[in-house]
Amino acid sequence: MGTLTIALMDPPYETETTTTALRIVDSALRKGHSVNVFAYEGAVNLTMAEQAPHANPVKGTSVEEEAHPTTKDWIAALFRSAQGRLSWVNCGLCVDERGAGKWIEGPVRGSPKEFAEWVKSSDATLVIPTN
């Protein structure tokens, strides 16, 4: 099995790229690979612990009926299924700029230095830029 490193930059709820990136992480984990994610810029908001689903006042549906997904729940689920094979670093400077320091269990604070080290030690690297 190999190790895949991914650099992510998109913030939550903005583009389809977030969904695609998490699908790639899920697939790689299911195949038995280890995955490193370096969350840069707006991607540090993906794991914010206080994200909350909401009702839809236009349709008149409740929170439960909407079943609104949050990125922090998706990523928490990936951590559960990874069984120690998912590492996630949130860029510290990006976190400070955005006041995004309160996150779910799993991610750690880091810097581009960690990303560079991961690139060197991984079998493959995928850089997913913003649009």
Binding site: L4, I24, D123, T125, L126
Partner: peptide
Amino acid sequence: SIDELVDLVVRDGRKA
């Protein structure tokens, strides 16, 4: 499938 993309990147080591 997305699984195929993961194989192209990780297993085959393609420059992506």
